[in-house]
Computed example of a mutant assay.
Amino acid sequence: MSTPSTNIEREKIKGIFSSQTVQKIGTGTTVRRTISKMYWQAEELDSGAIEIQALNTSYIPAGPKKEISKEEFLSKYSPEPEFYVSTVYPKMQELNSTIQRGEKARQAGATYSAEFEFQKAIGVDADNVKANFGLGLTYMERGETHKANDIFERLVKLDAAFKQEHKHLFNEFGINLRKTGMQDQAIDYYNRALEMSSRDENLHYNMARAYYEKGELKSCIEHLEKALEINPEHEEAQKFLDYAKKMQSQNAQR
């Protein structure tokens, strides 16, 4: 007869929680206490620490995330499952639907409808990665590079924009920066990405293409060599490197 396992894995902490702060307003006999409540999205990490992110005024998780100890979290934060069901989940679903409408409109070539939907989403969550990527791509497709540059400057500051979950949009955005002649922005963009993932041969390859289109063969070759150092089987990088070295040699002979 086997004994039941005592190593039952407990569920990790995840959901919407609240914290309260008590403030004193006034002085002497007029002093009164007010309690302010804040809502947070919380998730327990593999390390055991809790990652929290505040909900904005639209009740969407937004802004910077921070880690706190489990002990601090359990002593100061209270679960709010009903609030999640009644308020947060519907708001997040509504935001996702808005972004999906924007993406469908952009893919159909209806750029003004796409702009409307993405702007609406950004009004709810200014740092939403998908909405910002979508709006930036919409502007590039319309040739409005000055507006696309504003979005680029916002995205390049967001760590979340360079995470694996956004890889598809991230790649499309970088390629479109280059194709629309925004080579300096493309280089800044890929440099930012390399800070997050320095061992990505495709980032070095894309950086090389941007430098080539700027006419900077030396930097182009350096990044192609890095791409091949990471992945010697990268055929496109090898062909591009051979061509770039040939062009460099021809330029030196002139």
Rank of each mutant, 00 (worst) to 15 (best):
E11R: 04
E225N: 14
A237P: 00
R192F: 11
K130F: 05
Y59P: 01
G136I: 06
Y59V: 09
E213I: 08
H223G: 01
D127Q: 14
T6A: 07
A121Y: 02
N128D: 07
Q53S: 05
F83C: 00
A227Q: 03
K70H: 10
S5T: 13
I8R: 02
N128L: 02
N149R: 13
T29K: 15
K104V: 15
K70F: 09
K130S: 09
E117W: 13
E11K: 07
M92Q: 09
S197E: 10
H234W: 05
D184R: 15
A108P: 04
R209P: 06
A110H: 10
H223C: 01
M38I: 11
I221M: 08
V124T: 15
I175A: 11
P81W: 00
N149V: 08
E144C: 05
K214I: 08
T6G: 06
E80C: 00
K91C: 04
Y211P: 01
I52H: 06
Q183L: 14
K245V: 08
F152V: 09
V22R: 13
F240A: 08
Y189R: 13
E9D: 01
I8E: 03
S219N: 12
P64R: 12
L155V: 04
V124A: 05
A252F: 02
L135H: 11
E103S: 14
L177D: 07
K239F: 12
I221A: 05
L228R: 04
S2Q: 15
D242I: 11
D200H: 06
A110Y: 06
M247V: 12
T34G: 00
E153G: 04
S219Y: 06
K24R: 14
G63E: 02
H223T: 05
H166M: 02
E51N: 10
K65A: 13
K66H: 09
E141K: 10
K214M: 08
W40F: 06
K130P: 03
S75A: 13
R192V: 14
G28Q: 04
G134Y: 07
R10C: 00
M182L: 15
G102L: 11
K104A: 13
A244C: 06
A148Y: 05
Q20E: 12
A193H: 08
G63D: 02
E103Y: 10
F152T: 06
A62H: 01
A108F: 08
S58E: 15
H223S: 04
D200P: 05
I230K: 02
T98N: 10
V124Q: 09
G134A: 10
I35S: 10
Q164E: 09
F118P: 07
E172H: 14
Y89W: 02
G109F: 09
